[in-house]
Design a protein around this nucleic acid. Structure first.
Length: 516
RNA sequence: CGGGGUGUAGCUCAGCUUGGUAGAGCGCUUGGUUCGGGACCAAGAGGCCGCAGGUUCAAAUCCUGUCACCCCGACCA
């Protein structure tokens, strides 16, 4: 018997190719990002994970403000009647709403507590699944004249959608997000706003998350309930499934009509305003994980990393320990004066009384971009031993201390850019232009070993194919292959020819994929 | 919400078929030997066996219900 080839040891089991879904959960856990909670479908976001969200918030908030938006805050509860105002909107969200019906608890016979029947609310309150209607009520008061427009508001908040199947970060019953809501005097202005914010999202995804995205429009079937047009950014994960990472909606006058947002224009005519809404959520953290992480755990794009550099002092010799520590602290202080991507370089010194290997692997699994090992020998030579999370873990090199200080921002940038290029290459590798139905079907039919309950194996990726945009056909394809139109790309999609499914004339190529 | 699976120590799991005082490895604590690296030896701490009922002299084990998690669908950011 020959021995099987030795499998390289990885910090995360299983690996991505062995079981992607399980790998994802293990990465989240190993990096200490979040955990499930006693509440069904709701997660506890732990400090390392929350810091990533804070970084997302900080940079997006800056971008929102730079485009003229102001933050505000609206109630968590929405009167049921508000939600009923927009027909498609109700229909879309009714199935997944948490509803508050009482305001007091009383002792239950036999122990425990129960809602006091006497305290039933006259009108139930819905925990917001999104805030168009409650914000609309405010907008209706705030807008009287064309001079009040445009009204550009953003809210950072939590929302609740009673999802049937949840996954940490990707889909939770409660999630954190931001929702922008704007009102404009003309349809055109509102459309410009819709596209502007889509651009902001794409810019953020690519330049901060290092996650390449395709900007596009949703088909009728995938549109936000109540919107006239929905636009999105779509990214490819490492299992080649698509992730909708952000949406921007042109709402037309649907919600302004429902909420009575009216103004007198310059000619004295009473008009309904034109509104938009747009949002991204903690799902972005899931997207970031699935875009960059490897079989050793989380890989963080430096611009969103809670900390950029960890210094691991070699402290096991008592006589040199104080000196090593002092040297490391001084280095850290100097690094913290450097600015990278709008923040100072954030440095951790891991002084914990742990074995070196344990510390190193802990930080690898947390995805920190740069690790520095510093011991007496390095100090003697005025150097640090550097390892980068975007390189194999054994690849370490001695770098002169002062060179490192001078170059740290450049190195972080190189990692950031490298991650983006790698993700782009991955997407390119798994995208195909497909013009025949047979090839299309083959592309999306992955063998499952005959077990209908088995986890879904990796998908082929994105198919760029012409499509006639018939909703019936789209539904059929979804039922047959589990594949949907992720978006109609805004850029580079024009290519008239026969629809890949029906052969009917089509003007554009769309992106087909399986999705989260 | 339908189908499948799993709940036993912080983690991964064995024990359940055939009911009889709760187990292993990793992790944790302490001591020692090591150590520019996920080490080794020894001694310890730690569990109402998801929860609630039932059957039984006796339940982790059998029965019923319920909750949670995972996978496959449907739904969705």
């Amino acid at each position: 018997m020959s021995t099987p080839p030795a499998k390289p040891q990885t910090a995360i089991t299983p690996t991505r190719t062995e079981d992607y879904a399980e790998w994802y959960q293990q990465v989240v856990r190993a990096a200490d990002l979040a955990e499930s909670s006693p509440v069904r479908g709701c997660m506890v976001i732990k400090p390392w994970g929350y810091a990533i969200w804070e970084n997302i918030q900080r940079s997006l908030d800056r971008m929102f403000k730079d485009t003229g938006h102001k933050n505000a805050y609206f109630p968590l509860f929405i009167p049921l009647s508000f939600l009923e105002k927009e027909a498609e909107h109700v229909e879309g969200f009714a199935k997944e709403c948490a509803v508050v019906t009482h305001h007091r608890l009383v002792p239950k016979p036999g122990g425990g507590l129960m809602p006091d029947p006497e305290s039933a609310l006259e009108e139930p309150l819905v925990v917001r699944p999104t805030s168009e209607t409650i914000i609309g009520a405010s907008f209706a008061k705030w807008v009287q004249s064309y001079r009040d427009l445009p009204l550009l508001i953003n809210q950072w908040a939590n929302v609740v959608r009673w999802e049937m199947r949840t996954r940490l970060f990707l889909r939770t019953a409660e999630f954190l997000w931001q929702e922008g809501h704007t009102a404009h005097a003309t349809a055109n202005e509102a459309r410009v706003e819709t596209m502007k914010m889509l651009d902001v999202y794409a810019d953020f995804a690519e330049n901060w998350m290092a996650m390449p995205v395709i900007k596009g429009q949703k088909t009728e079937g995938e549109r936000f309930p109540g919107a006239v047009d929905t636009f999105c950014i779509e990214a490819m994960m490492q299992d080649r499934k698509a992730l909708q990472a952000g949406t921007s909606h042109f709402l037309g006058q649907n919600f302004s009509t429902a909420s009575d947002i009216k103004f007198l224009d310059q000619s004295g005519t009473l008009q309904h305003a034109w509104t938009t809404s747009w949002g991204v959520s903690t799902r972005l953290v899931g997207g970031m994980i699935m875009t960059h992480s490897d079989d050793d755990g989380l890989v963080l794009p430096p611009r969103l990393a809670p900390a950029h550099v960890v210094i691991l002092p070699v402290l096991h010799k008592a006589e040199t320990a104080p000196q090593v520590l002092a040297w490391c602290r001084e280095l850290a202080a100097e690094l913290r004066k450097i600015t990278y991507a709008g923040r100072t370089v954030e440095v951790e010194i891991d002084e914990r009384d742990l074995r070196g290997g344990d510390k190193v692997w802990g930080w690898i699994k947390k995805g920190i971009p740069i690790r520095l090992e510093v011991g007496p020998r390095d100090i003697e030579q005025g150097s640090v031993f550097m390892a980068r999370r975007d390189r194999p873990h054994k690849e370490k090199s001695a770098v002169k201390r002062d060179d490192f200080v001078a170059n740290v921002a450049a190195i972080l940038d190189e990692i950031q850019t490298g991650l983006f290029e790698r993700a782009k290459a991955w997407r390119a590798e798994h995208s195909r232009t497909i013009d025949s139905l047979d090839e299309f079907k083959a592309f999306f039919t992955a063998p499952r070993g005959g077990d209908p309950n088995a986890p879904v194996p990796p998908h082929a990726g994105f198919a760029h194919s012409r499509f006639c945009l018939d909703p019936e056909v789209e539904k059929r394809i979804k039922d047959e292959l589990g594949v949907t139109v992720r978006c109609i790309p805004l850029e580079g999609g024009d290519d008239p020819g026969p629809c890949v499914i029906t052969g009917k004339p089509a003007t554009k190529r769309v992106v087909f994929a399986k999705s989260y």
